[in-house]
Amino acid sequence: MRENVYILAIESSCDDTSAAVSCNKKILSNIVATQEIHKKYGGVVPELASRDHQKNIVPVVDAALKNARISLSQIQAIAFTRGPGLMGSLLVGASFAKSLALACRLPLIEVNHMKAHIMAHFIEGEKKEPDFPFLCLTVSGGHTQLVIVRDYYTFELVGETQDDAVGEAFDKAAKILGLPYPGGPLIDAYAEKGDAQKYRFPISNMPHYDYSFSGIKTAFLYFIQEQTKQNPLFVQENMADICASYQACLTDSLLKKMMEAARQYRIKTLCIAGGVSANSLLRKRLQALEETQNYRIFIPPFAYCTDNAAMIAISAYFKYLKKDFCSLQVAPLPRLEIK
């Protein structure tokens, strides 16, 4: 039998500082600063700052080890997010991971954030693992990608957004409607009671399996401005229908390309990953494909949709099995690509 592998993973690519401890494919603890540390320190941890990452990283790592009931001496490797992300934020996690690896004489593992979102599907839990090959739609505030995953190590990018990410299309529409940031979840909530057929918004059709969401955002803005001119209360009176229609257009566009790619590459297993995979319509529409079209559908648990270190830990575990370690010279790459 194989020995247990304990990994400490750190994720700091954007707003949230996060640390996780894993044992093989199991997650023993997964701490995200914006939620857990609040409770502990009573204060509000402001979003988005490398200086905040610096402040958070020690307590977050500490909490991850404590919650896992694992001491640093039991850890066998340190993993960190190399990119993509915000340089200042990535640097904090990378420097911390390197220092710790050096001090504890542990191997260091660099992880691609976008692959990690997908790898979250392999975290041991109630859900079964997707079978290879599968097609994954990774959707978040910063990314929209279609990726074919052939095995734990082989990723093939088949399409991505050429401008705005779908999460941005949600958030900016929410702003136009006067909703607070991040507005995606609010649009989802309003949409539940709305009529999705009431309005149509044009979606740019990109070649191949690429996406574009900048045009629909502009069309949405013009539409709201036009309607508000005629009826200043238009938004208030039709909030649910506007949200439902807009959400349906975005979801249609996401799924249309995904299905085209699935047919073209003859893939019957479909997954979603990333923050926007928390969207209820996207989940519902995908789930429906399982019944109507005989696809196998995999949706990660909510906790592993948004940025978290658990997905970095599971990615690192598979790299550990291959002894795929990196040197202390490895630098973060804000625009690291998926390959």
Binding site: C14, L48, P84, G85, L86, M87, S140, G141, G142, E160, T161, Q162, D163, D164, A165, G167, E168, D171, K172, S214, P334, R335
Partner: peptide, 14 residues
């Protein structure tokens, strides 16, 4: 030559 996407979320693209 690279794909250039909006940095609204990432804040900075290089």
């Amino acid at each position: 030559k690279e794909t250039m996407s909006s940095p609204s979320f990432s804040i900075v693209n290089e």
